[in-house]
Design a protein around this nucleic acid. Sequence first.
DNA 1: TTGTACGCGTTATCAC
DNA 2: GTGATAACGCGTACAA
Lengths: 353, 353
Amino acid sequence: MPASSRPATILEVARDAGVSKTSVSRYYSGERERLSASMQQRIAQAAERLGYQPNPMARGLKGGPSGLVGMLVADIRNPFSVAVMHGVEQACRRQGLSLMVCNTDNDPTLERQNLALLTSYRIEGLIVNAAGRHGEALAELAGGGLPLVLLDRSLEGIDADEVGLDNDQAIDIALDHLTERGYRRVLFVTEPPARASSRQARLARFESNRAARGLEGDILQAELDDTTRLDHGLSDFLAASTRQPAAILCGNGQVTLAVTRALQARQVPLGEIGLMGIDELDWCQLVTPGITTLAQPTDAIGQAAVDRLRARQAGRTTPEPRHERFIPTLIPRASTCRPGNKAPDATCDETRP
Amino acid sequence: MPASSRPATILEVARDAGVSKTSVSRYYSGERERLSASMQQRIAQAAERLGYQPNPMARGLKGGPSGLVGMLVADIRNPFSVAVMHGVEQACRRQGLSLMVCNTDNDPTLERQNLALLTSYRIEGLIVNAAGRHGEALAELAGGGLPLVLLDRSLEGIDADEVGLDNDQAIDIALDHLTERGYRRVLFVTEPPARASSRQARLARFESNRAARGLEGDILQAELDDTTRLDHGLSDFLAASTRQPAAILCGNGQVTLAVTRALQARQVPLGEIGLMGIDELDWCQLVTPGITTLAQPTDAIGQAAVDRLRARQAGRTTPEPRHERFIPTLIPRASTCRPGNKAPDATCDETRP
DNA sequence: TTGTACGCGTTATCAC
DNA sequence: GTGATAACGCGTACAA
């Protein structure tokens, strides 16, 4: 029954147990074995009685390990970010680490502030999934020895471990799928890639491999809140695609949402006009007739990020940064089934969306 | 260019500026005005040069204000929770507070652990949107003087401020809407209410007011991963509703998702069978023909939670807990348009979903 | 207006 | 094995 307004201190426990605070400290610092059995028991009882918990502040002050991992997220409302974050969290828990997440809302100022906050709490590692305008601050930290993992991002001037989707393979899988399904023209829709390297990577791969596969196509870059631009871009593509089977490939989940809205407003029949997105979302299965997606292994990605951090911490890894790329899973649905498809596969036969 | 592996201390800044550390401390503790202009300038320069940041650990150790607010979230993957969290975060920022969020994954053990973590960092206030099995721990904290706000939850034995939806009004608005649209039978689908009081409140209101409005109806309680139970419940309701226009009311966003999936698997035409949900989600507008929802003012709710915390901190509020309830906004869509509806409103005329 | 000295809870270093 | 003591960085009486 540890009922007291102020948490018990190590000193109180020591007094209560009739031992020195050094011994209590040892008990909680992994040196439990070096203590005599009777002392262990007395400490355990006293701690239980007083509801003692070591104070991480005081610990951190002394410079000991904080057991804290920081994470910088660009947009907490992005389901993909949340999913990865969940993976990171689980992985941390398994390692006995605590996670401190900061949302930057895509704002460089907030990013700086939150970075300061995290470092001030003496985090032992940092996982970054943010814009990264001010890469300098990050570079400094990494230079200072803080283990750093870039999630779904590369940052210019920063040689850190990276974990994320294999963007090249993802685009290839998508183009393969669209080709198989008989589409001959593809529009790639993406947010402006300036801010995030993964967008850049996907875009570049699309540009370089589209033609190689004999596909016609185009690229539409638009901020997602700029519905006018999006509408016009889609209109132009659709208007130019009357002769050949055409499909739209969305660079990420947010894009898929915006594009689906735009298409629905124009009453474009999905399937006849193909639609495919990177990132699997709750509703992709629900929107008639079901939207084909490339699902990222978000839990595995989160786990990998924490693993990288641990490896750096332990120094059990080469100095040069390592990049870990995950292969997405194709989830075929009817949004990529052309009505006239000669050889439809199972997905297209099913009446179920 | 504050490039150093170890952050600067207040002492170093003091030395560099040729002043005492007391002055530097004052400079950062809001007593900036009491210092001479020249000293302010010298401190600012030195701090800039060394990249100094006050160490919150050391600050917190002394018992000073931590500037930290804690938040306990039951399920970080629930879009509603994330939306409110975003509101809380923004409000904190405006107040110069930092937010530390912990996800409990609906696990009482995790809840306890995270609670311990948060308190160990000397948070000045706690916002709770979690299961609350072990209410004792929370009750203790509140008793110890920690400002506490319950979000979308009441907890037995805890007299704390509460912020959330006006569940009674929400249900009333929903029943009004369904009645207006001509439905005569309503099935209320909810997750088991045991864990969350808001579910209990909505359920109770539905039970008490359904009959009063002359509606027939039923209630389906099911864990969302128990698809069998959900399917059977829906089947039974649909089978029994051949004579009268029937609708389904979903108790929250997660339920809406599960029910929509189930209905789509059975190829039930939305509208003919009405569908309505509490919580607005990205995709409710996209699923043909659009799902009617009750949107919660998530930002306002988050803001209100932080406001309550501040009021408690300042002691500028009555000791007895205050409950703040928000009215949802009805977003009518075609999922509640019966084909034979005599007096369809604009929503039902539009061809746009 | 500015500086000195002490304590916050913990761990590391050294002695016993 | 165990205990005393000095840091850690900061806020704050208190003295100047």
